[in-house]
Design a protein around this nucleic acid. Structure first.
Lengths: 143, 143
DNA sequence: AATTAAAGGAAAACTATTATCAATAGATAG
DNA sequence: CTATCTATTGATAATAGTTTTCCTTTAATT
């Protein structure tokens, strides 16, 4: 992974810096879909000089070279995902967590849309909303 | 439509004001999925005293009573749609326009997700990205 | 090791949205 | 129809996420 991001950066003429590696490694090792501030806060202990602006600038580059996808799931900030293969996401309306939805074949649905629209499609994002298992439990057993 | 929004507002204890009716009527008569500023600008000639804050507050109420859905399609502002039945949207990455995708049955896909996730689902949003017919033409015949 | 241009960091700028609050205007009762 | 009451409006300030600026630092190359 680190080799991959190093190569990808160099190929596109971007420099390989400790900050960029740290940000990418952090993002590719979590399934939490953090936003910029969370990434910044979590890296702070290890990279005390890291700036929030650097997180934003790095995410823009990683998005541009296809190593990161940006999620807009109805919040006031963007979330980031290093797993760039297209997959749906679901957000818990109670606690706010965002999870992946894996192993779902939307192929038929996407094909139907592609053949019915006059747009030339290049991508898609599927967002689901609901209540996560933990919050379901809490609602049944209010402490 | 106007009767509907009037009734819906009164039933929920909201007052019926000219601003609210104007905003809802405007939104339900367009397929352009405008954001708050566009709504404000387009109503400005007819309602010169209309405030942008009123547009935001009205959208919040209309969303709450289920007369409007809010779209987050990767831009820096929210768009609004008075057609609340769930349907996918597509955004042109070239000119920025957002269109509806109608007559698509995502039922099978949604059912698959519902049965595979441990979330209790309450809704979803499907966003597609691509190039609209007009922009496709312009790319072939650059003026 | 020297050079060059890109990148980092701190802070300011920007922008969409929300909150504040005095003035206004629906809704209701009489 | 009029008075009363309270929600709403509109102008403005405040907020918050993101981007830009600009000077210093550093990665890459010779």
């Amino acid at each position: 992974m680190a080799i991959c991001v190093t190569t990808m950066l160099r190929e596109r003429g971007f420099k390989v810096t400790p900050q960029r590696l740290a940000i990418y490694n952090y993002l590719s090792s979590t399934k939490a879909h953090p936003n910029a501030e969370t990434i910044f806060n979590d890296l702070q202990p290890v990279y005390p000089t890291m700036s929030l602006a650097t997180v934003y600038k790095t995410m823009e580059i990683l998005r541009e070279i296809g190593l990161v996808q940006v999620l807009n799931i109805g919040e006031d900030s963007f979330r980031y995902d290093a797993f760039t293969e297209n997959h749906p996401h679901v957000r818990c309306m109670s606690c706010g967590r965002v999870d992946d939805i894996d192993d779902i074949k939307a192929g038929k649905f996407v094909d139907d849309v592609a053949s019915s629209t006059s747009y030339q499609l290049t991508g898609q994002q599927f967002y689901f909303f609901g209540v996560c298992p933990e919050c379901q439990k809490q609602r049944k057993n209010p402490s």
